[in-house]
Each structure stands twice: as C-alpha cells, then as structure tokens.
Amino acid sequence: QVATSTVRILGMTCQSCVKSIEDRISNLKGIISMKVSLEQGSATVKYVPSVVCLQQVCHQIGDMGFEASIAE
C-alpha cells in the first residue's frame, strides 16, 4: 500500500537545498518518490506507511537544518 502526503519545509533558499533534501529523503527505505517545491515551501512524498512514517521524514529534514512539518 502506497500513500501520498505533503510536508511543509521552512528554510529552503535555493535549488541546492531542494536537491539535498530530495537526495537524502529518496534514499530512505520505504520512500518511493519525493518532489520538493522551493516556491511552495513543501514536498510531496510518496511512501509505504508500513515501512516509513512521515515523522521520520520530517526528522531527517530537521537534521539537515530545515523546519519540516506534516501539512494538514
């Protein structure tokens, strides 16, 4: 089973930030795809909930120095 959710990301300033986040999160087990939008300050994450949760994704992004939260 696959889920798609949006994560809000604060602190991104350039495409390099976007690429860094996409590269790191895409390597997590259970992540199918991730598309980060600098303009919208968010990311669309396609993932397998039984393998990885959005809290883990937000935590990983937080470790990179950005502020991440699950969009309502």
Rank of each mutant, 00 (worst) to 15 (best):
Q56E: 14
K35R: 11
V2G: 05
E72F: 12
Q15D: 10
E67Q: 12
G65L: 05
T6V: 13
C58G: 08
G30Y: 05
E67Y: 14
S33T: 07
I32A: 00
Q40Y: 13
C53R: 12
I9P: 02
I32T: 02
A68P: 05
E67L: 11
K29W: 13
M12K: 02
T6C: 11
A43T: 02
K19L: 09
H59D: 15
C53D: 11
C58P: 04
V45E: 02
V18P: 11
M12E: 00
T44S: 09
V18Q: 05
K35A: 08
V57N: 02
S33D: 08
Y47N: 01
E72K: 08
F66A: 02
Q1E: 15
Q56N: 09
F66Q: 02
E39C: 07
I21M: 02
V51G: 02
Q56T: 13
V48E: 15
K19N: 10
E22F: 08
C14V: 03
L28P: 00
V7T: 00
G30W: 06
L28D: 00
S69H: 12
E22W: 07
Q56D: 12
I70H: 06
Q1R: 07
E72Y: 13
R24N: 08
K46R: 07
S50N: 07
S37I: 07
K29R: 13
G62C: 12
V2S: 10
L38G: 01
K29S: 10
E67D: 10
E72C: 08
E22N: 04
V7G: 00
V2R: 02
S33E: 09
E22V: 09
S33M: 09
L10H: 09
G65H: 03
P49S: 07
Q55P: 06
S33L: 08
R24V: 09
K35G: 03
L54D: 00
V57F: 03
R24C: 06
L54I: 14
I70D: 04
A43S: 04
C14T: 05
S20Y: 06
I32R: 04
I31R: 02
V36Q: 00
V52G: 02
K35F: 08
A71H: 07
R24Y: 06
H59I: 14
H59K: 15
S16D: 13
Q1Y: 08
I61C: 04
V48A: 08
K35Y: 07
S5M: 12
R24S: 10
V51N: 02
L28W: 06
K46S: 14
A68W: 08
S20F: 06
S20D: 12
I70W: 08
Q56A: 12
F66M: 02
K29L: 12
S5V: 13
S69D: 06
L28A: 02
V52T: 06
C17T: 04
Y47E: 00
I31C: 04
T4C: 15
I70S: 07
N27C: 06
V7I: 14
V51H: 04
S16Y: 06
L54W: 06
G30L: 07
A71R: 07
S26L: 10
G41N: 12
I31H: 01
I70E: 06
G62H: 13
I21S: 01
G30N: 01
I9D: 01
K29H: 10
C17S: 04
I25V: 08
S37E: 06
S20V: 09
Y47K: 00
A71G: 09
C14L: 04
S37Q: 07
K29F: 13
A3Q: 09
E67A: 11
K19C: 05
Q60S: 11
M64W: 04
A3M: 14
V7K: 00
H59R: 15
P49D: 04
M12C: 05
S16P: 04
P49I: 07
I31Y: 03
I9M: 00
M64A: 05
S16V: 12
R8V: 09
S26C: 08
L54K: 02
L38T: 01
A68N: 03
G62L: 12
I70P: 09
C17V: 05
L28C: 04
V36E: 00
L28V: 08
V57T: 01
G30R: 05
K35W: 07
A43W: 05
N27H: 12
M12I: 05
A43N: 02
S5G: 15
L28R: 02
L54S: 01
C58H: 06
K19V: 09
R8N: 09
S42P: 03
L28E: 03
T6M: 14
S42G: 06
S5R: 13
G11I: 07
S26M: 13
T4R: 07
R8M: 10
S50R: 06
G65V: 04
Q40G: 10
D23R: 14
T44R: 13
I21D: 01
L10M: 11
A43E: 03
G65T: 03
S20E: 14
I61N: 02
R8C: 11
G62D: 13
V45D: 02
D63A: 14
K46L: 15
Q40P: 04
T13L: 10
S16I: 13
V45S: 01
V45I: 11
Y47I: 02
L10V: 10
V51F: 07
T44Y: 14
I9S: 00
M64H: 01
S33G: 06
G11A: 03
S20Q: 14
I21A: 01
Q60G: 04
V48W: 14
A71I: 14
I25W: 03
M12R: 01
D63L: 15
V7W: 05
T4Y: 11
N27M: 15
P49V: 07
S42M: 14
K46N: 09
V7D: 03
S37M: 07
L10A: 10
G41Y: 07
K19S: 09
T13C: 06
V36D: 00
V36G: 01
G65D: 02
M34V: 14
P49Q: 07
Q56H: 11
Y47L: 02
I9G: 00
D23M: 12
A71C: 11
I32D: 00
K19G: 05
E39V: 10
S26W: 06
I31N: 00
C14M: 03
Q15I: 10
T13H: 13
V45Q: 02
M64S: 01
C17L: 05
A68G: 03
A43P: 03
K35V: 11
R8K: 09
I21P: 02
L38Y: 09
V7R: 00
C53L: 09
I21K: 01
E39D: 11
A71W: 14
Q60F: 14
E39T: 11
Q60P: 02
A3L: 14
K46V: 15
I9R: 01
M64C: 03
V48R: 11
V2D: 06
V51L: 13
I25A: 01
I21V: 05
C58A: 10
E39F: 12
K46T: 15
R8Y: 13
A68F: 06
S5K: 08
K35S: 09
T6A: 05
G30V: 08
D63K: 14
Q60I: 15
A3S: 13
V48T: 08
D23P: 01
T13I: 10
V57D: 00
Q40L: 13
I31E: 00
S50C: 05
Q15K: 11
R24M: 08
M34R: 00
I70M: 08
I21Y: 02
Q55N: 08
Q55K: 12
V7H: 00
V57R: 04
V52W: 04
R24H: 10
I31D: 00
K46W: 15
S50M: 07
Y47S: 00
P49N: 05
L54G: 01
V36A: 04
R24A: 10
S33R: 06
T6K: 10
I32W: 05
I70K: 03
T6S: 09
V7F: 13
T13F: 15
L54P: 06
A3Y: 15
S26A: 09
G65W: 04
